[in-house]
Simulated assay, not measured.
Amino acid sequence: MGSLGTHFTSFLFLFPLGVRRLVSSSSIYLNNPSLYRSKTWYFSNPTWRNVDFFVFLVALPIASFSHLFLFLAFSGHPTYKFSFLQQSVVVFLFWVLLIFIAIKEFIDPIAMPEHFIFVFAGVAFLIEYLMNGKGIVGLGELEYSFLGGLTLVCSAACFFLSLKPSAYFADFLLSSGLVLKGTWVLQVGLSLYTDAFAFKGCGKVVIAPSQGQGNTDVKCDLEEDKLRGMALMNLLFVVHSIMVLIMCFVLLGLLSRNKVRPGDPPIMAQLDSDRMLMHPLPALEME
């Protein structure tokens, strides 16, 4: 909640993160499924290739402090005022998660075991779900309910990976859930906080005169317009889900094609390579 800028920034964080995680985890799994173990963050060598991790490490505390400053400075409606505080808390939790990952990777792996970090990530997603879309009703509540459902999926995947890190399907759900969260949070920002992309007969989010909770809603001219908007929102979520699923399967297909050459399974290729080393070419033997 907040503005189009907040939702667009969330998209810039979530979508690349989900795609990168999907590509990294799938590449490791396709190399050797029996030895696969999920990681909280897939680092690459050399270190400079992990620039996205360090960008997040710097950007998240700045974003958390910015939301906290807006909470302290904003004197308007309580719903908006406390939404800044909620966002600050959520962003801060995920920044702490990155700190834990950095300690494990660069300082002391024993002090920060993988399963503990996954549990913390699950708790952070759960807290995000509890603070998701507070004070919004009607069409806006429906949009945020889909976002909350995706957050629960990510939380459940993290808890499951803390118990069974070899479960690739849980890592796939986490990665694709992050991608879908990214595209959907952008859709929510466009639909709720702009007039240009609002549904026919509806405007952007407005604040009702009442000061109670649950008084923030999308302004629609007629009740039929609101019902039509809800039906379109359900359809849009299905379209987003299908497109993200197709994208994930295309990425998996490309990765598997790069790992295995047609007609030359990895095991047979390795056997042929070993055989060549053991038995030199006839021409060399003759010389």
Rank of each mutant, 00 (worst) to 15 (best):
P33I: 08
I246T: 03
V55G: 12
F54K: 05
H77F: 14
W184L: 09
S3R: 13
L254E: 13
P280H: 02
P16G: 05
K204P: 00
S26G: 10
F65H: 03
L14T: 10
S210E: 05
Y193L: 05
F125Q: 05
I267W: 09
E114Q: 09
F69M: 07
T151Y: 10
A121P: 09
S83N: 11
C154H: 04
H115I: 04
G229L: 08
F106Y: 02
Q211T: 13
M230F: 10
P280K: 03
A167M: 15
A196H: 09
L98E: 00
S25G: 01
L252M: 13
G229M: 03
S155E: 04
C202K: 00
N50V: 00
V89Y: 15
D272N: 14
S155C: 06
L68T: 10
A111K: 08
C154Q: 05
V153S: 06
L68F: 15
L174E: 05
I136Q: 00
F100A: 07
L93V: 06
G177D: 01
T47K: 12
V250D: 01
M233T: 12
D52Y: 06
C202L: 05
M243I: 12
E223P: 04
M286D: 08
P113R: 07
N215K: 07
L235M: 10
F11A: 08
K181W: 01
V250W: 02
I110D: 12
S241R: 09
Y29C: 01
A269W: 06
